[in-house]
Amino acid sequence: MHQLRRRDRRPARRVPSEPPRRPAFRLTAGGADVVLVGYFSAKQKDFDTLMAAAATELGAHGARVLAQIVQRRGVSDGGVRKMGLPYSSRTLLTYGKVREVAQVCDRTDADAVVFVAPLTKRQQRTLTDILGRPAVSLTDVLAAD
């Protein structure tokens, strides 16, 4: 009698189900209170003007920027070699900076957190879970209109 090969005896792999989709964050007509977060390398000397331009863009779309937080990369000797990489692939920022953003969001009762740098879907999910409010990139907010 024919015996099944080992791979034929294995159970079929389960395909993971997709996580539930969250609706995209949209600025309401009355405006949303947001915290603006920037992630810049030390080579980028004009990060203040980039943050001001992002705040102006958000204001033009009806948002009120309650606070601005900046994470710099490459200021120390060890960071210079890794300047192009995020601090964390899960959150883009350091753990301490994420805690600081969460505290500012709680203190100001912000509706959302807008990042100047583009975020991956995983980073958006992780930051939204940690911060307790939508975490989106500036390009997503501007493209939604």
Score class of each variant (00 low, 15 high):
63 A>I: 06
108 T>C: 07
121 K>I: 12
132 G>W: 09
68 Q>S: 10
135 A>Y: 05
63 A>P: 04
107 R>K: 14
103 Q>C: 04
70 V>K: 02
99 R>N: 02
134 P>T: 04
69 I>L: 12
20 P>V: 15
2 H>Q: 14
120 T>E: 03
110 A>Y: 00
44 Q>N: 14
121 K>Y: 09
136 V>E: 01
83 M>A: 10
105 C>R: 03
135 A>C: 08
53 A>H: 06
119 L>I: 04
134 P>E: 11
144 A>R: 14
1 M>T: 13
91 T>W: 05
43 K>N: 15
102 A>L: 01
81 R>P: 01
99 R>T: 01
8 D>F: 12
125 R>W: 09
35 V>C: 02
108 T>V: 06
104 V>K: 07
135 A>E: 08
47 F>W: 15
103 Q>S: 07
129 D>A: 14
69 I>A: 08
81 R>C: 02
116 V>D: 14
140 D>S: 10
88 S>F: 00
132 G>D: 10
24 A>D: 11
107 R>A: 12
89 S>P: 02
136 V>M: 00
19 P>D: 15
51 M>D: 09
25 F>E: 07
127 L>H: 04
110 A>C: 04
11 P>C: 13
11 P>H: 14
143 A>Y: 10
120 T>H: 04
123 Q>C: 08
134 P>W: 05
2 H>W: 13
2 H>F: 15
102 A>E: 01
139 T>R: 14
62 G>V: 02
61 H>A: 12
136 V>I: 04
15 V>Y: 11
13 R>C: 14
50 L>I: 05
76 S>P: 04
33 D>S: 13
10 R>A: 12
8 D>V: 08
86 P>N: 05
11 P>S: 08
13 R>M: 07
129 D>P: 06
73 R>W: 02
20 P>N: 15
59 G>N: 07
141 V>I: 11
85 L>C: 01
30 G>S: 13
136 V>P: 02
66 L>G: 01
130 I>M: 09
11 P>M: 08
122 R>W: 04
144 A>F: 10
88 S>E: 00
109 D>E: 11
4 L>K: 01
43 K>L: 13
133 R>F: 13
56 T>M: 06
125 R>Q: 13
111 D>W: 03
133 R>H: 07
141 V>F: 00
114 V>K: 13
125 R>M: 12
50 L>M: 14
76 S>I: 00
145 D>Y: 10
47 F>D: 14
9 R>P: 07
121 K>P: 10
96 G>A: 09
138 L>Q: 11
6 R>E: 15
8 D>M: 13
58 L>I: 09
142 L>T: 14
108 T>K: 03
25 F>Y: 13
6 R>I: 14
5 R>N: 10
12 A>Q: 15
138 L>C: 05
81 R>I: 00
133 R>I: 11
28 T>N: 09
42 A>F: 07
48 D>F: 08
72 R>V: 00
122 R>N: 10
71 Q>W: 04
9 R>W: 03
49 T>M: 12
95 Y>S: 05
18 E>H: 10
